[in-house]
Nucleic acid binder design. Structure first.
Length: 400
DNA sequence: CCTCCACAGGAACTGATGGCGT
DNA sequence: ACGCCATCAGTTCCTGTGGAGG
């Protein structure tokens, strides 16, 4: 009987992989041909067509639920256009940002500026007034005589940030051309929220919403086709069983038609199958993958919480299904036992709703007549999971 | 039918941090 | 050296509310 470790290592060394090309199984990979999005691709191209005629196109707004390939299509169309106009005297500069990756308005503007080759000196990553940053970006465009296209992903998120600070950067962005002498600026906004437009300032709508493209959700059939395409490219032939493929499509398509999820799922299933040295990806691998993805999400978000949030989660765990008041007093006693100052109840309710947003707990508003109004919170994940993840935390060890 | 509970959740503010321009 | 600006975590103060119990 050989050592199990050796056996595994041997297998890994000699065994052949059923995945040919891992990169294709990441949703950021842009296939040569994007199927099933023909009308949308056409529409996007149409509205950006003026660039070929060397004039500035209208601003564009792209809608669609997550995982519908919006970003992929926009990126593909733009890079093709960029390729074509490269040699003309109207070269375009493509700039992409995702609002979710930047927590602040300032950060977003800086990331735009960085791509315009403004370095640390010209555009410090903190310390300036927002209007100053904006001015410098525009100056750079003018100075280099650029025709910039700003692609702003998850622009609804940006709109939220903006509304909080009271600055209307979106408005300024859409009207930036009036301030530019030689360069030009086009805005392509990508939004998940179809109602997002209604929340905007009407002046922004009129210029940003000049053109609109809506991406519809994928149905299960379409997801299946997308998966098939990627599988033939990424996997060794015949290594994914049909039922497994169907389940993948059904799991991802069932809710929102999220192709991204489907691709994640098949990738993880493939990895699991490989680790088990199976020659085929079966339906069980997909199930396992689905569970694993869920657990990973839970674990990483649990780990990333600051101390007080962790304490609150523990308090909820110890008194499952209790009201805010009960949670708060339990939290206070937990604070005492780890020797930290407790925060106010107001702050705790805020944290609770933040945690609820991440899906780890779920709350229900309850009116108890004379006994007032409360929100009752329940864990949506297992207590074992929490215990397991918080065991490593030194300050929490003894109270888990 | 009114009252009044036990909070929800909005708004405005504070103080610390960090880095700018002048 | 100084004032200014943005941001973050947290606080203070506040108004709002569905319905059990009187």
């Amino acid at each position: 009987m050989s050592d199990p470790i050796d056996r595994l290592l041997d297998a890994a060394e000699t065994g052949k992989s059923i995945i040919k090309n891992r990169d294709i199984l990441h949703f950021t990979y842009i296939p040569n041909t994007i199927q099933h999005r023909n009308t949308e691709q056409e529409q996007v191209t149409q509205s950006l067509l003026p660039i070929l005629k060397q004039s500035r196109p209208s601003n564009l707004l792209v809608y669609g639920k997550p995982g519908t390939g919006k970003t992929l299509v926009v990126k593909k169309v733009l890079s093709k256009i960029q390729e074509r106009v490269k040699k003309s005297n109207f070269p375009i500069k493509l700039i992409y940002t995702n609002s979710k990756e930047e927590t602040t308005l300032y950060g977003l503007l800086v990331s735009l500026g960085r791509q315009l080759e403004l370095d640390e000196k010209e555009l410090p990553s903190t310390g300036l007034a927002i209007s100053e940053v904006f001015k410098r970006i525009l100056n750079k465009i003018d100075e280099k005589n650029l025709n910039a296209i700003f692609v702003i992903d998850e622009i609804d998120y940006l709109a939220q940030l903006v509304s909080k600070t009271g600055k209307d950067i979106l408005y300024q962005l859409t009207r930036a051309n009036e301030r530019l002498k030689t360069g030009s600026l086009t805005l392509v906004g990508i939004s998940n929220d179809l109602t997002f437009k209604e929340k905007l300032d009407p002046r922004v709508i009129s210029s940003l919403g000049e053109e609109e493209v809506v991406f519809t959700n994928y149905n299960v059939e379409q997801i299946k086709k997308i998966l098939e395409e990627r599988i033939t490219e990424a996997f060794v032939e015949d290594s994914v069983e049909d039922p497994a493929l169907n389940l993948c499509a059904a799991l991802a398509g069932g809710e929102h038609g999220d192709a991204r999820r489907a691709i994640d799922l098949i990738r993880v299933a493939g990895e699991i199958a490989e680790r088990q040295q199976s020659e085929k990806v079966t339906i069980d691998h997909v199930r396992e993958a689905s569970l694993k993805i869920e657990e990973n999400k839970e674990e990483t978000s649990l780990k990333s919480y600051p101390l007080h949030e962790k304490l609150i989660i523990l308090a909820i765990m110890k008194a499952n299904g209790s009201s805010t008041g009960e949670i708060y007093s339990l939290y206070k006693s937990l604070c005492k036992s780890v020797g930290r100052d407790e925060l106010t109840q107001r702050r705790i309710t805020q944290m609770l709703s933040e945690i609820e947003l991440s899906g780890i707990i779920s709350g229900r508003l309850i009116h108890q007549g004379i006994h007032g109004r409360t929100k009752k919170y329940k864990l949506t994940i297992s207590t074992e999971m929490i215990k397991k993840t918080f065991k490593d935390d030194l300050t929490l060890q003894d109270i888990v």
